[in-house]
């Protein structure tokens, strides 16, 4: 930036002052609290309700999972109603992503990457179904339906039993077959220096 550092700091200070005044003079609903950002005087703190509505990610250790429960037995029906048209009766038929099978195929010429053969964390399945599925109506499943659909996809892959309860506590403990299948990026992974 072309402005000298001291000049810039003064500008910023003045801008912050002006913004702070403006904020108190015209207190719109958006600006109920005082501005949160210390240097530039912009933004406000999110309310607890606002955060609850958007803080939807689930970590591998289970942080972010809401209370609720489901079993594969209950998930069979959810799957048939909400998933089967796109993923097939047994999760293997498509037409969209194959969800089941592929164990032992990753090092063959035709690897099948599925939830069962490839995914390292069961929490990712819960997170993704809540986030993005069903593809044509994401966000329309209840919490218990998400647990049940998760359980059913895991059950079809032979990872949980039909009546195992999947919930906040048990889901992070599910060990996926390919849990240790991922490595860090080693690139550049080839000799890269060449003579022109």
């Amino acid at each position: 930036m072309a402005i000298a550092r001291s000049g810039f700091t003064i500008c910023v200070a003045i801008a912050a002052l002006v913004l702070a005044c403006r904020a108190t003079l015209s207190a719109s609903p958006e600006r109920s609290g005082s501005p949160q950002s210390p240097t530039f005087g912009v933004g406000r703190a999110p309310t607890a309700a606002e955060l609850r509505a958007i803080d939807i990610d689930v970590a591998p250790d289970g942080r972010g999972l809401p209370s609720g429960r489901g079993t594969a037995a209950a998930g069979k029906d959810v799957y048939a109603r909400r998933c089967e048209t796109c993923h097939g009766p047994t999760g293997r038929e498509g037409p969209q992503d194959v969800l089941v099978g592929g164990l032992g195929s990753l090092s063959t010429p035709n690897p099948q990457k599925t939830v069962g053969s490839y995914w390292p964390y069961a929490t990712t399945l819960w997170d993704y179904i809540r986030r993005a599925m069903p593809f044509d109506h994401p966000g329309t499943l209840t919490t218990d339906e998400i647990y049940a659909a998760t359980a059913y996809v895991l059950f079809m892959n032979g990872i949980v039993g039909e009546h195992d309860e999947v919930n906040q506590q048990t889901l992070p403990l599910v060990t996926m077959p390919n849990r240790s299948g991922f490595v860090a990026d080693p690139r550049p992974d080839i000799p890269v220096k060449r003579k022109p």
């Binding site: 591998p60 990753l106 990457k113 490839y118 964390y121 997170d127 299948g181 991922f182 490595v183």
Partner: peptide, 24 residues
């Protein structure tokens, strides 16, 4: 910690001949 989202596990990981996959 990384969230391990579907897009950084199931997808956008590079499968190697030995069956391991490079992540991130």
């Amino acid at each position: 910690q990384a969230a391990m989202t579907r897009e950084e596990t199931s997808k956008y990981t590079d499968l190697m001949p030995d069956g391991t996959a490079r992540q991130f």
